[in-house]
Design a protein around this nucleic acid. Structure first.
Length: 156
DNA sequence: GCCAACGTTGGC
DNA sequence: GCCAACGTTGGC
């Protein structure tokens, strides 16, 4: 069991898109970064929980959570010449990029801005602040729980 | 295998 | 839209 933070640009594909999918389930694809790929390959598993993090937008932050509902598998978009994620170097024998499926779990009433997270002394160590550009990043169980406790606070 | 140039990400 | 950070590319 592991916890993750997935970055996405809400204008391109955000939590509302995920919420509108059939079964609120979608393929998380288009990840073209080796460090992220290695994390997916070696550590992402069915049943893991993820934060959906909106980036490159007005208020970057955590919009909700989702559950990983598949094992990692080769990302089909790497073989599709019409896809922006097409990778002519990748072969079916030795696919370079991986995807996995996620299902919406919680859509937060209160959006949790990255700023709020950064103010928390116990969240200073988050990968989000140490290595901002990684689009699939590990979250510790403590961080996961602390972030959920913040949400309950902001609701009352 | 180094490293400069280049492209992309992402907060502001 | 700017620009800093950082990942990738390609010449040597």
């Amino acid at each position: 069991m592991a916890w993750w933070l997935l970055k996405t640009e809400p204008d391109v594909y955000g939590i509302d898109h995920l919420a509108a999918e059939k079964n609120q389930t979608a393929r998380w694809d288009g990840i073209r970064n080796y460090q992220a790929r290695n994390l997916i390959r070696d550590q992402v598993a069915n049943g893991d929980l993820v934060f959906i993090y909106h980036s490159s937008c007005k208020v970057p932050g955590i919009a909700g959570t989702a559950k990983v509902v598949s094992a990692p598998y080769p990302d089909p978009s790497q073989f599709n010449p019409d896809s922006p994620y097409y990778d002519p170097e990748s072969t079916a024998d030795n696919p370079r990029w991986l995807a996995f499926d996620v299902q919406l779990a919680e859509k937060f009433d209160t959006f949790l801005p990255g700023k709020t997270l950064k103010q928390q002394p116990d969240l200073q160590g988050m990968v989000l602040f140490r290595q901002g550009r990684l689009s699939v990043q590990p979250v510790s169980e403590k961080e996961w729980q602390l972030i959920h406790s913040l949400l309950q606070f902001s609701r009352t």
